[in-house]
Simulated assay, not measured.
Amino acid sequence: MDIEWRYTADAVDWRELAELYRIAPLGKKLPERLEIAFTNSLFKCFLFDNRKLVGAGRALADGVDCSYLCDVAVHPDYQDSGMGASIVNKLVELSRGHSKILLYTDPDTEEFYNSLGFKRMNAAMGIFVSEDKAIAEGILDK
């Protein structure tokens, strides 16, 4: 497998990225919102196999204190290949030098991120637009 890694959003087809999130399955994300999110992220990576988008991820970072990894997705045909771990590891590498590297995940994938060096935090809080959904998914306590 000859995967091409790209670290800029130049020439990304945002509809193709939205479709990747839908089939990953990581939910429905609108192409125009993905464009804003990835464009505003300090670090981003897109993985292509023969021009087909097969993986992506980003880190929203300020350059010194905090880097927040998010939106890591892998095409179903490439899952369980180590590609997701490679994306996370690359974003961590790009984020080195920040005081902290964070992410949030659903409870089902905590073990995966723990295997990549992430530790469960004792204190984290959030405000979600879809609070009921976040509670149902186990992300927020009631």
Score class of each variant (00 low, 15 high):
residue 4 E to F: 00
residue 4 E to I: 06
residue 4 E to V: 13
residue 4 E to P: 03
residue 5 W to K: 08
residue 5 W to Y: 14
residue 5 W to I: 09
residue 5 W to V: 07
residue 5 W to H: 08
residue 6 R to Q: 15
residue 6 R to E: 12
residue 6 R to S: 11
residue 7 Y to G: 08
residue 7 Y to C: 09
residue 7 Y to R: 06
residue 8 T to I: 11
residue 8 T to E: 12
residue 9 A to M: 00
residue 10 D to A: 12
residue 10 D to Y: 00
residue 11 A to I: 01
residue 11 A to D: 14
residue 14 W to D: 03
residue 15 R to A: 10
residue 16 E to T: 03
residue 16 E to Q: 14
residue 17 L to S: 04
residue 17 L to R: 00
residue 19 E to C: 03
residue 19 E to K: 11
residue 20 L to R: 07
residue 21 Y to P: 02
residue 24 A to D: 12
residue 24 A to N: 11
residue 25 P to L: 05
residue 25 P to I: 03
residue 27 G to I: 09
residue 29 K to L: 09
residue 30 L to K: 09
residue 32 E to A: 10
residue 33 R to H: 07
residue 33 R to K: 11
residue 34 L to M: 06
residue 35 E to S: 12
residue 35 E to Q: 15
residue 37 A to V: 13
residue 37 A to S: 15
residue 39 T to K: 15
residue 39 T to A: 14
residue 40 N to E: 14
residue 41 S to A: 15
residue 41 S to K: 11
residue 42 L to H: 07
residue 43 F to P: 09
residue 44 K to N: 13
residue 45 C to Q: 06
residue 46 F to W: 07
residue 47 L to K: 02
residue 48 F to L: 14
residue 49 D to S: 15
residue 49 D to P: 02
residue 49 D to N: 15
residue 49 D to Y: 15
residue 50 N to I: 00
residue 50 N to D: 15
residue 50 N to V: 04
residue 51 R to V: 08
residue 53 L to A: 05
residue 54 V to Q: 00
residue 55 G to N: 04
residue 56 A to R: 01
residue 56 A to T: 10
residue 56 A to D: 01
residue 57 G to L: 06
residue 58 R to E: 02
residue 59 A to G: 03
residue 60 L to Y: 10
residue 61 A to L: 03
residue 62 D to T: 06
residue 62 D to E: 07
residue 65 D to I: 08
residue 65 D to A: 10
residue 67 S to R: 09
residue 68 Y to L: 15
residue 69 L to S: 03
residue 70 C to H: 00
residue 70 C to G: 15
residue 70 C to W: 06
residue 70 C to M: 12
residue 72 V to H: 07
residue 72 V to W: 02
residue 73 A to W: 02
residue 76 P to T: 11
residue 76 P to H: 14
residue 77 D to F: 09
residue 77 D to G: 06
residue 78 Y to A: 04
residue 78 Y to S: 02
residue 78 Y to F: 13
